[in-house]
Every structure is written in C-alpha cells, then in structure tokens.
C-alpha cells in the first residue's frame, strides 16, 4: 500500500515536471536561437504526453476508469466535428473541464489528449496534434487539480478558468509556429504574432464559457450519479 502510494506520487511528480519542462525548453530554444527549434519542440510536445499515458497504463485501469474517459472523449470529438463550420468555437474545452472536475486530473488529461488524437483522425493529423493533445490535456489536468484543491466551489471560478483556458490553449497552439518559423524572435515580434491570433483565441474563450455555463451544473450532477453507478466512489478498490 505504502509503496503503491509512493509510486503514484513519483508519477505525479513526473507529470508536473513534464508540464513545466516544455515551456522552459521552448524558452531556451528561442533564447539561444536554436536552428532546430521546430524539431525539438515538436518532439518535446510528443514526449510531454508520454508520462501521462505511461502513468495511466501503469495504474492498470479498470473498465470503470476507462469508460468515462472514452465516453467523454467521444462526446467531445462529436462536438468538435459538429462545430467544424464555426472556427475556434468548439465544446471540447468545456467538456474536458467538466471531466477534470468529475473524474479527477488524470481522467481530465486523458480526455483532453485522446479527444485531440481521435478527432484529428477525422479532421486530419498535423504537427498540431501533439500540441492539441498537450493543451487540452493540460486544461483537463489543471481543472482536476483546482477541483481537488477545492478552488472550484464557486462556479464563477470555473467560468473564469474556462475563459483563461481558452487563452491558454491559444497560447500553446500559436507558440510552435511563432518560435519555430520566425527568427530571430524579438519581444515586439512575438507580441505582434501572438496578438494576430488573439481574437480567434478570445472567440474560443468565450465559446468555452458559453458551453460551460449550461453544462457545468447539470453534467456534474449527472456524472456524480454515474460515478456511484460505476462504483467509482468505493475508494477501497
């Protein structure tokens, strides 16, 4: 039991280190004007997903841990495909946030990452796939963390988080293009580049909040019931 707990803890440490390592690497690449920034950061984005996946694999998940993630990912993917005609408006972030709240940080991460992976199999893979996986995963992960720290007691905090998450998603998604294909990158240049995408990201932010407002209460309640039915609240097993 004790060793079990320790291994979970090391898993968590690895996850957090990964979350921090990626931005640091990106900054260093820009600072030293590395020619291979595109390659390095893309590899890093792929690798950043790996610890979460491996930790999940190692935890030997039971069907009742697997299926909520699968269902939420399927819903989010369906939602994303449905909203393809309207760029930057997609319910994925909102669904991932709710998953993080209801099923915890790890499920939140996986829902986000797998939604990106699966939906891109319909909409076309590209270098954006690992970044989307990471960004949406991060949104779900942080949502789980906030919930476990009891910060989400006030629903307005969730809405604010939803808004910020849209911007965070945009920041992550724009970064690869900007740091890899603009050189040398000046502060002014970076700001202009991020600024040019700002309004799209704002749309995503607002969309996330708009999706979040109606589903937050009812979905969390419904998911709590589902957790009971799956037997997910019996912590003994």
């Amino acid at each position: 039991m004790a060793s079990d707990k320790r291994s979970i803890d090391t898993g968590r440490i690895i996850e957090r280190v990964t979350l921090i390592a990626l931005p640091i690497l990106m900054f260093l690449c820009v600072y030293y004007e590395v020619e291979q920034t595109a390659l390095l950061t893309l590899l890093a984005a792929i690798l950043a997903n790996i610890p979460f996946f491996i930790n999940f694999e190692k935890s030997r998940p039971k069907p009742r841990h697997i299926l909520p993630i699968v269902v939420m990912s399927a819903l989010a993917t369906g939602g994303r495909i449905l909203f393809t005609p309207i760029p930057h408006v997609k319910p994925v972030s909102a669904i991932v946030i709710v998953t993080g709240i209801a099923f915890g940080r790890r499920s939140g991460y996986l829902t986000g990452a797998l939604t990106a992976l699966a939906s891109n199999m319909f909409m076309g893979q590209g270098p954006w796939t690992p970044w989307q996986m990471f960004a949406w995963g991060l949104i779900g992960y942080l949502s789980g963390v906030m919930e476990s720290r009891d910060l989400f007691r006030n629903r307005w905090v969730v809405y604010v988080y939803g808004f910020v998450s849209g911007l965070l998603f945009g920041l992550i998604m724009d970064s690869w293009h900007i740091i890899s294909f603009v050189s040398p990158l000046t502060w002014k240049g970076a700001l202009t580049a991020y600024g040019s995408g700002f309004f799209f990201n704002l749309a995503h932010s607002f969309a996330t909040v708009i999706f979040l407002v109606p589903i937050l209460g009812s979905w969390t309640r419904k998911l709590t019931r589902i957790k009971h039915k799956f037997g997910l609240d019996y912590s003994g097993e």
């Binding site: 491996i54 999940f56 694999e57 697997i66 699968v70 797998l114 199999m121």
Partner: peptide
C-alpha cells in the same frame, strides 16, 4: 501503449 490504443479504438 496498449491501453491508450484500446481506448482510442473504443472512442
């Protein structure tokens, strides 16, 4: 990643 792969199939 057998579990992840299986989950994507399930999705």
């Amino acid at each position: 990643l057998p579990v992840i792969s299986m989950m994507v199939s399930m999705i």
